[in-house]
Amino acid sequence: MAGTDAALLLLADSRLPAGGHAHSGGVEPAVAAGAVTDVADLTVFLRGRLATAGLVAAALAAAACAHAAGPADAFDALDAEADARTPSPAQRRAARAQGRSLLRAARATWAHPALDALAGTAPHHPVALGAATAAAGGGPGDAASIAAFTGVTGGASAAVRLLGLDPLAVNRAVAGLAADIDAVAARAADAARGPWAELPAASAPVLDLYAELHAGADLRLFES
C-alpha cells in the first residue's frame, strides 16, 4: 500500500467540521467524578473506552461501510443494532447528534448513494461514519480504524481542555495506545464480516451511568 488516501485522513482529522469538538466521549463526567485527574488516569480511561464503546463503534462503522458498498439500501436495521448496543438514552442522543452532523459534512463533501440513503435522518455516528468512509473511497477496515482512532483522540482533546493537561504528554499517551487502536480496529473489521446481530456488544456500565449523570448536570461544557 502506497499510503493512506488524503480523503480518508480528512475523516480522521479533529478539524473535520462535524460537531465532534463539543463531545468529550465521557471524559467530562469522568473528570467531574474525580476518576480522571491526570495523564495516567486518562490513559487508563481511554484504553477502557477503546476496548468497549470503541470496539462497538468501530464494528458498526465497518459494517456500515461494507453495507454502503452494495446497492443503496436502508440502514435502519444496522441503526437499530447500534441502539441495542447503546443503553444510555443520553448516549443515543449524543450519537445521533454527531451522526447527523457528520452526515451533513459528508454530504457537503462527497456524493454517494449511501449518503443519499441516509439523507434527512440522524443515524448513529458509526453508521454515518461507515457511509462517509465508503463515500471517501475507503473500506470497512478504514472505517473501523477511523472510528477507533477518533474515539480516543476526541476524549484526549476534551481532557486537555478540561484539566489543562500538558498536550504533549497527552499526545504521547495517545501514541502509546496506537497498537491497541489498530488491534481493536482489526478485530472490529473482522467482526463486521459476520451477521449484524453478532457484532460486538461490549458494554461499559460506568460510561452509561456517567452519560446519564452528565445529561442532568448543572455545570457542563460538553454536549456529552
Binding site: R15, L16, P17, A18, G19, G20, H21, A22, H23, S24, A97, R100, S101, R104, A105, A158, R161, L162, R220, L221, F222, E223
Partner: peptide
C-alpha cells in the same frame, strides 16, 4: 441552547454543526 466544548469560537466559526442543527 448549544454547548461548545469549552471552545465558543469553534462553535461559531470552525465547526458550526451544532448551531446549524
Amino acid at each position: 441552547a448549544v454547548r461548545t466544548g469549552a471552545c465558543p469560537h469553534t462553535a461559531i466559526r470552525d465547526d458550526i454543526s451544532a448551531n446549524l442543527d
